[in-house]
């Protein structure tokens, strides 16, 4: 890409349902990302253009949007990876209500997280109150703890995006969160009932869209959702387990 090229953007602006695409142009130089272009447009021609951002390094997950229709972090989307022969479109995430321009109301995610049972460790392994864990065991949950809560996986998930089942489905982010807790070597809690009933993991039909958009490359579907689905199935639907339960005294959930 030559430096100093003028590029057009179609940016979705407005509040609630009153929205429209507006055209802007700005000069793009080497190495710029979409967020740089948005900042430049703010400073040059649209001072009140609303967008969220923080770290500009792909670590905080604030600048989630849809660039040319694809959910992405604006700070990690390089301009020279886009087709610049036509205007670059920038829209807010679709799975959440818009507040203004590129900013959406993501508070629902925070509410969902709060209802998931918190971390509950086993008693310390050592008299000094500390635990022993092997690196191999922590790595499994560490993958899920890489999540930066950008909510792009929520945005792309059809259960939320197309069907709007925010009332009975927690979404990939919260399955990753639950997986991190359930697979934490020290955790003793059981969250399977919540996964089945409140967070509706059964609605996920493993299309893997969430995995594809994850900027942290977390293998959401294979490593988090499918194992959780299996645990839910084992706990609630397995005929053998059901049979055993009839004859065996009721036991505590998995510890």
């Amino acid at each position: 890409m030559s430096s100093g090229k003028t590029v057009s953007f179609w940016i979705s602006r407005g509040e609630g349902d009153r929205t429209e695409f507006k055209e802007y142009s700005t000069t793009i130089t080497e190495g710029m990302v979409v967020l740089d272009a948005v900042h430049q447009i703010q400073a040059e021609s649209a001072p009140d253009l609303a967008c969220r951002w923080n770290c500009k390094a792909g670590k905080c997950g604030s600048c989630s949007a849809e660039v040319n229709g694809k959910p992405a972090l604006m700070c990690m989307t390089r301009m020279n990876d886009l087709d610049l022969s036509q205007p670059v479109s920038i829209e807010p995430m679709k799975a959440f209500p818009r507040i203004r321009d590129l900013v959406t109301d993501v508070s629902w995610n925070y509410a969902v997280k709060e209802r998931i049972k918190k971390f509950n460790p086993r008693a310390p392994d050592s008299p000094d109150g500390t635990w022993r864990m092997q690196q191999a065991d922590v790595e499994r949950a560490q993958e899920f703890r890489k999540c930066i809560e950008c909510f792009l996986c929520q945005d792309v998930c059809h259960v939320l995006r197309e069907h709007g089942r925010h009332d009975r489905f927690g979404g990939p982010r919260h399955f990753v969160y639950t997986a991190a807790l359930e697979m934490h070597p020290l955790d003793t809690e059981n969250r399977l009932k919540g996964l089945k009933d409140t967070d509706g993991i059964g609605y996920c039909n493993i299309t893997k869209c969430c995995t594809k958009v994850c900027p942290e490359h977390i293998t959401i579907t294979d490593n988090a959702i499918i194992p959780l689905k299996e645990r839910v199935a084992d706990e609630f639907y397995d005929p053998l387990t059901k049979l055993f339960r009839i004859f065996k005294p009721k036991r505590e959930p998995r510890r």
């Binding site: 509040e15 703010q42 001072p47 009140d48 253009l49 609303a50 967008c51 507040i99 203004r100 321009d101 900013v103």
Partner: peptide, 11 residues
């Protein structure tokens, strides 16, 4: 600053 008070980065 132009515009209104809702999420206005200029303000």
């Amino acid at each position: 600053v132009d515009g209104h008070r809702e999420f206005n980065p200029g303000w």
